[in-house]
Design a protein around this nucleic acid. Sequence first.
DNA 1: AATGAATGAGACTTCATTCAT
DNA 2: AATGAATGAAGTCTCATTCAT
Lengths: 212, 212, 212, 212
Amino acid sequence: MSFRQERAAERKANIIRAAAKVFSEKGYHEATVEEIARELRFTKGSIYYYINRKQDLLFECHDLAMTMLLENLDQIEASGLAPDSLLKEAIRTHIGIIAGELHLLTVALGSDYLLEDEYARVVIQKRDAYEARIRDIVRRGIERGIFRPVPEKMVVFLLLGAVNSISRWYSPDGPLPIEEIAGFYADYLVDPLTAGGPPQGETAAGSQAGNV
Amino acid sequence: MSFRQERAAERKANIIRAAAKVFSEKGYHEATVEEIARELRFTKGSIYYYINRKQDLLFECHDLAMTMLLENLDQIEASGLAPDSLLKEAIRTHIGIIAGELHLLTVALGSDYLLEDEYARVVIQKRDAYEARIRDIVRRGIERGIFRPVPEKMVVFLLLGAVNSISRWYSPDGPLPIEEIAGFYADYLVDPLTAGGPPQGETAAGSQAGNV
Amino acid sequence: MSFRQERAAERKANIIRAAAKVFSEKGYHEATVEEIARELRFTKGSIYYYINRKQDLLFECHDLAMTMLLENLDQIEASGLAPDSLLKEAIRTHIGIIAGELHLLTVALGSDYLLEDEYARVVIQKRDAYEARIRDIVRRGIERGIFRPVPEKMVVFLLLGAVNSISRWYSPDGPLPIEEIAGFYADYLVDPLTAGGPPQGETAAGSQAGNV
Amino acid sequence: MSFRQERAAERKANIIRAAAKVFSEKGYHEATVEEIARELRFTKGSIYYYINRKQDLLFECHDLAMTMLLENLDQIEASGLAPDSLLKEAIRTHIGIIAGELHLLTVALGSDYLLEDEYARVVIQKRDAYEARIRDIVRRGIERGIFRPVPEKMVVFLLLGAVNSISRWYSPDGPLPIEEIAGFYADYLVDPLTAGGPPQGETAAGSQAGNV
DNA sequence: AATGAATGAGACTTCATTCAT
DNA sequence: AATGAATGAAGTCTCATTCAT
């Protein structure tokens, strides 16, 4: 990448982050392009040198966030950890990303019905891929007898629902360090899966396997 | 309540539900007053005979939803159940309300930054009250040694985050009956609180039958 | 048509004529919707109660003009005149329509590249139909030996080119009554087609000398 | 003219022609400076090294076209032809210029209301001069008894209207060579002026039958 | 009770134009 | 000579809201 291109890319990333900030504070529609511009010390028109439409900014927020989550998964899956540790690590790092890119993830985890069809398709596909990979971890855990049998899909929804909701209340100024939050969530959510722990065997789980 | 008032109240509820439907499908801003009117077989102008502003409809959605949740809590708290059963029951019925009033709860659990300050204050207060009461159940459980000591606030966030996210994927046409989902969530989320590990033997499963 | 619908249709026709006026004076792009509204003592927003987009107004101008020309052709073709008289009558009435609906025809005969594809297709089809019907008159004249053999298509282009250009200079305030202009054009353009040469002597020419 | 000046002039002509091309295809307003630049393998910014304003380009199109027409008239008037032959020659060469500089003439013969007042004045003056000189040819013909008495002004409008409209449908890829079109138009339009009817027999018409 | 009509504020977007490099 | 970047003015369009009937 040439120097010029690099600078342009950097500037674009800035714009996306500025958009994420404003979007996360006021919502997509209440956020005006002018506000995003102001955030960057730009004028309204200037933004349009880098983007085509406001909607693009929303898409880029979603896309960047999903890309970060997926790449994170790549990394930790390369570690060779066992399913239980792996799932915990996935949760912890997922939470770490939420905290580290709070605006971005707040936008991305918020309502996606704001995305126009064309864009929604791309984003939903990535999100589905992410969910599928988490589900795979759970499945592998069950197969190896590390996790008790559970309806994987529902469990993943439960896990991600709990985890993602952190973006709604977390503040870096809060009393708890994010690592502690992350650790607590990981344990709280994964431990019930480990065989010798929580509900043994006969939960509705069995009958539900593969149902959701 | 006089016949007149009754009819008026009923009509108001209809309007709120129509608004909730459209809001939940398209989001507050993409939903036009005309669409809501159409849903009611009204014209845009006519709806203003019943409401003052579009924003009112959003507020009513939030308010009605929170009222339903709070009243539900009143009811089950009157049952005299022990904290663990009570918490599970709270979760189950909370999920039942989500499923039963999907549009309404989807709107109410979605982004609240769409509410103007005046209204937001009212709604947030109710939501805080709801969280506080759930937190109290947890606290009582800890005090009585039924639950292990945990950071109550975070646990409640975790619980509600997981539970509320159901509104994002649940569909009445899905394969799983909502009671099963509710039971699974309740067990999965409450069992980790019980002191020595999961409740022995008596998994909620049994006690859940036909509960929601 | 109900009273209401009638009124609405009338109002729409007014809007189209107002648009035609402004378009013909300043061109499509230099004409702002606000100016058109002002012409009608409307506000900008009000116009959008009747139309969807500015482009619609342009289309309606084209469409209305072509419809008038085509209906006029229907009428005079029903007269049973011979091709030479018929062609002259067609030219005369065509010119009459230009003068009678000067704004509208100025817009319609002006550049059609301003129309978006969807609309252009409709308009071009009507224009082609119009040309084809004029061409048919010429062809019938040739077949019956009333006209000498000529390349019909080119002749029609020549005729219509000459006739339509009237919209560029004609003014109702000019010295010449439109009937005289129309008669002169009809004779000047059709006589060359009649086999033995032009009608001798009796052209309107004399009385018009130095008039324009 | 120095080498430098020559090069500069050439470049300017290129730019005007590029502008004419884009203007003629999309109209003045729909043509963006960027497109014109692209046509020249320039960037938007660069073009402003050569021009001051977009409007200048439009003016230059008009001006260049009128200059070509006027210079053409100079040339053929120097030939000493009689009014009838002269008028035909004027029409033929006028048409030749339209075909030879199609883009340019399409722009120039199209709507002039796009020109700002300052420029419009210059252009309209040239156009008036052109019309006046054509009118003079007609007048001389009448005075010498070669043409029958006709309202000169209207005749010139008719002639030019017909001739100029060629720019709307002519394509170099069409079936007819431009010389034939030009000849046909010249005869068709001028013959009606000659007193006793058109020159008998020798009209180009015969040879062209069925051509278009 | 209901509605057609009208309005005005505001947002997105486009683009000619400028300018530092 | 050339260009990437930035700007500001303007215009289209949407829609919640009002109001006379």
